[in-house]
Computed example of a mutant assay.
Amino acid sequence: MKKRLKRHYRVARYVVYRQTILEPVDHLWTFLGTFAAISSIGLIQQAGFTRQDTIFLIGSFGASCVLIFGATHSPLAQPRNLIGGHLLASLIGVAIHKCLPDQLWLSSALAVSLSIVVMQITKTMHPPAGATALIANIGSEKIIQLGFGYTLTPVLTGVSVLFVIALIVNNLAPHRTYPTQPLSWPGRFRGLRRRLQSSKTEST
């Protein structure tokens, strides 16, 4: 038991150590990406606020920036997780609130827990999305009134801005790549075509 605890401690210390060993230029790219993303969403809200009273900026986007700019290579920061996690969590959060509008403690707990399970099942785990589901239940009256429109704005609009800026900023730095495994559609189509051709020749 003692050896196991020591081993776990060494692993945890190594992980923390690795997280803190960054090139100084990394801090600059993290700052630039986060600043550009949040300020862009904030400016969109400021420009449209007086005319449409629309919400574009929610707290969970700040947590997403920690991942997509501060831990760019994390599986939890990849586009599938960023976009899928937020969208699924927002839909679940709104649906639960509509079913249990007067039981805030229960709707909040169900929204977050169900969102996590659905993200696990769909392989779209993105920790900040838990807050997106929670905000759908405990947010301001303005957010609550949006209903399923909450998924479109602020969630989809904000996530789209985060994604585009992450693509630009994280790929400007020579030592960063985002996403870590870009999808090569032409290569996939060529491989599929070869398999189809080979199956045809085998059948003849």
Results as ranks from 00 to 15, higher is better:
Gly62Cys: 02
Thr132Tyr: 04
Arg7Glu: 12
Thr132Met: 05
Val94Tyr: 04
Ala12Pro: 07
Pro186Met: 12
Gly158Val: 02
Ala133Glu: 06
Pro174Glu: 07
Lys98Glu: 15
Asn81Pro: 15
Asp102Lys: 02
Arg7Gly: 11
Ala136Cys: 15
Leu82Pro: 15
Val118Tyr: 03
Ile44Gln: 01
Asn170Gln: 13
Pro174Lys: 13
Ile138Trp: 00
Val11Thr: 00
Arg7Tyr: 15
Ile68Cys: 06
Gln197Leu: 09
Ile144Val: 03
Ser64His: 01
Ile92Val: 07
His86Asp: 09
Arg10Tyr: 15
Ser90Gly: 15
Gln120Asn: 05
Gly187Trp: 09
Val118Ala: 07
Gly130Ala: 12
Ser160His: 03
Arg188Trp: 10
Pro186Asp: 15
Pro179Asp: 04
Asn171Met: 09
Arg190Gly: 02
Ala131Gly: 14
His86Asn: 14
Ser184Pro: 04
Gln145Phe: 06
His175Pro: 11
Ser39Leu: 10
Pro186Ala: 14
Gly59Arg: 00
Ile55Phe: 06
Lys2Asn: 14
Ala89Cys: 14
Ile92Met: 03
Glu23Lys: 03
His27Arg: 09
Ser74Thr: 00
Val16Gly: 05
Leu32Asn: 04
Arg10Cys: 14
Thr157Gly: 00
Ala136Lys: 08
Tyr17Gly: 08
Phe163Thr: 04
Ile143Glu: 10
Pro79Lys: 04
Thr157Phe: 00
Lys6Ser: 08
Leu167Lys: 01
Ile58Ser: 08
Val66Trp: 04
Gln45Lys: 07
Val11Lys: 02
Asn81Asp: 14
Leu100Trp: 11
Leu32Ala: 06
Thr20Met: 09
Gly42Trp: 08
Arg7Asp: 13
Lys3Thr: 14
Ser64Gly: 08
Phe148Val: 11
His97Lys: 09
Leu134Tyr: 01
His126Asn: 06
Arg190Asp: 00
Lys200Trp: 04
Pro24Gln: 10
Ser198Tyr: 07
Arg190Gln: 00
Lys123His: 05
Leu134Thr: 00
Arg190Asn: 02
Gly33Cys: 11
Asn81Glu: 15
Leu43Lys: 03
Phe56Asn: 04
Tyr9Phe: 14
Ile58Asp: 06
Thr201Tyr: 09
Pro127Phe: 05
Leu88Gln: 11
Arg13Glu: 13
Leu43Gly: 10
Leu5Gly: 06
Asp26Gln: 00
Pro24Trp: 09
Pro75Ile: 08
Val25Cys: 00
His73Ser: 12
Lys6Tyr: 12
Lys2Ala: 12
Ala36Ser: 11
Lys2Gly: 08
Ala36Glu: 04
Leu43Ala: 01
Leu32Trp: 03
Tyr14Phe: 12
Leu152Glu: 01
Glu23Trp: 02
Val112Thr: 10
Leu43Ile: 05
Ile138Met: 03
Leu43Phe: 05
Ile121Gly: 11
